[in-house]
């Protein structure tokens, strides 16, 4: 499959990550996570632990992190589950990266609402900065991925960069965000439309207006 992640050579990965272990802080975090589940059901903790591991890998490599095979095995071994079961989870969810990514993981939503609201322009802004889908830029800063719906359709089009959403984008605002990030500054998170606060309608509320200032019981008006 052409767009499947290119998993790096196993021998090299094992040499680099073979002795992965939690940092003291993450070891504590892992313990807390596992303790959330009943004894004998500790496998349920696989998803948070994989996320934790990915973040630790990210911290070690100054990127957004990914899951090398030995790291998945480390997590699986801690949870006493077969490697393949953890590997299935890691490959199933797109938020786990199976190959290294850059410092900023730009996930552009291309699902219908975003597409209708101009995600092509957002994508063009990314491509204009030299990003290629599924690849990391040579300076190691940006990795571009097209993803399916991230659940922010009211503010379409949107991208998720690392842990933040940037919404109501167009070509210019997307280019600005990327420039700010490349320059090491933090652009404004959330909607880029100055007329909106969060997911509220542009130009003020259009329904339930009486609720704006005080609680209003609409039931008798139905």
């Amino acid at each position: 499959m052409a767009d499947a992640p290119q998993i790096p050579d196993e021998a090299e990965v094992r040499a680099r990550w073979g002795n992965f272990a939690w940092t003291a802080e993450n070891a504590e975090n892992a313990k807390t996570v596992i303790a959330r589940y009943p004894a004998g059901r500790q496998r349920s903790a696989v998803m948070p632990l994989l996320d934790l591991a990915q973040r630790q890998v990210g911290a070690e490599t100054q990127t957004q992190g990914w899951l090398p095979v030995p790291v998945i095995e480390y997590v699986a071994a801690q949870l006493d589950m077969p490697f393949i079961r953890a590997y299935e989870v890691a490959t199933f969810y797109t938020m786990y990266n199976m190959a290294p990514v850059g410092r900023f993981h730009v996930q552009v939503c291309g699902t219908t609402p975003c597409l209708l609201r101009g995600s092509d322009n957002v994508m063009a802004a990314c491509k204009n900065r030299g990003m290629v889908k599924g690849k990391t830029t040579p300076d190691g800063l940006f990795t571009l991925t097209e993803v399916e719906c991230l659940g922010t359709c009211t503010n379409a089009p949107m991208v998720q960069i690392n842990d933040d959403n940037f919404e109501d984008l167009d070509y210019d605002s997307m280019s600005h965000i990327l420039e700010e990030l490349a320059a090491g500054r933090q652009p404004k998170v959330g909607t880029q439309n100055s007329g909106r606060h969060k997911a509220d309608p542009e130009g003020g509320p259009t329904t339930l207006k009486d609720m704006q200032n005080a609680n209003h019981d609409y039931r008798k008006e139905w």
């Binding site: 077969p82 393949i84 079961r85």
Partner: peptide
């Protein structure tokens, strides 16, 4: 022997032995 599994998802789902 838990060595066979289904990796990836949707149309990309593949049955494979571990690595």
């Amino acid at each position: 022997v838990e060595e066979i599994g289904a990796i990836y998802r949707g149309e990309n789902m593949q049955i494979t032995s571990y690595l």
